[in-house]
Design a protein around this nucleic acid. Structure first.
Lengths: 173, 173
DNA sequence: ACACAGTTTGCAACCCAGTTGCACGAAAAC
DNA sequence: GTTTTCGTGCAACTGGGTTGCAAACTGTGT
């Protein structure tokens, strides 16, 4: 499982320096600057780790788990990734989605105002065969009328079944 | 936390015998017989533990976690509860819902046919203040049109925010 | 009633994502 | 330059979930 043990051994600050180097290298610089700006606009000091985490989140097309981030960002310790994610969550820069797999997934909020409500709440799909979670970005979450008294904060809409690839494998089409 | 350590010490077969005794006592008998029938109708042999678990699920107005069941059914070991739940899930007698709390919750399916699709998929509400999960039984889950190729199995619709009681406490009303 | 095979159960141990305490190092404030 | 605060890595812990195994139970044939 992503060989954290092996790679853990070569988690040297060298790797970290390289990450920083690459950030300021060629086309990546802009990306990194954007992440920095994003962090600052949410009132978070843009440290190296935080930028890396935000960049990884921004670059991934799917919501990711803590351990996926850990594997991708070899230079950053799991606990640091966790703390960054917690911080981002508190500042409404990421939201979590639960797909019923073994761990929760994090996704960058696409909201423009960046505050309590996230105006990009879309439907997700969890494939019970390959255990991947898909963003159905153009399908907004349908709302319901809650009974009197409930105060809605957000909605987790998770459709489950077979993704197109697995459905084909199973002979559905 | 529900003192499992203390009570674990008095988990004697005496307790179990008493449970069985109470099941066949007065008004409880019918309840227990119903659970038995429910199990049998789904092709599951109705053992004492299974009946207890189903009964606990049936009696609870909210979806419950593994550990809640464990605390309630002192006579039954955690692993047995887990295995019963797994079995019930395989036979589509219970479904799981994820409220984003620390553990998943189990709920009896109200479907009449008892097969793959559950015709009682309703909305749930998770209170971020008191961490309770409510069944909004009369609100059916709204459906969406999935893109071509996806095969839908079921939907987890979890609204989050403040429950009426907590909303009042927070001065919303 | 008895032996036997298969099922169910409790116990203990394990797994692993998530979380926390702590001490070191970097950055900011003075 | 010194002090204070903040951020980080490391290691250990937590707790829900899961599994292996042996004992207890159930049902069947004799």
């Amino acid at each position: 499982m992503c060989l954290p043990l092996i790679f853990g051994l070569i988690k040297l600050s060298l790797v970290r320096l390289m990450s920083i180097f690459f950030c300021t290298f060629a086309g990546m610089k802009y990306e990194s600057k954007m992440c920095e700006a994003l962090l600052e606009s949410h009132g978070i000091k843009p440290t190296a780790n935080r930028i890396l985490v935000v960049r990884a989140l921004a670059e991934s097309r799917r919501p990711v788990t803590l351990s996926e981030l850990e594997c991708e960002l070899l230079s950053v310790d799991k606990s640091s990734v966790f703390r960054v994610l917690t911080l981002l969550r508190e500042h409404h820069l990421v939201h979590v989605i639960e797909d019923g797999g073994d761990s929760v997934r994090y996704e960058l909020c696409r909201s423009t105002d960046g505050h309590v409500h996230d105006d990009d709440q879309h439907v997700h799909f969890y494939c019970e065969q390959c255990h991947r979670t898909f963003c159905l970005s153009d399908i907004p979450v349908p709302t319901v009328d809650l009974p009197e008294g409930y105060v809605l904060e957000n909605i987790n809409y998770m459709a489950k079944g077979l993704c197109p690839k697995c459905a084909r494998k199973e002979g559905f089409y």
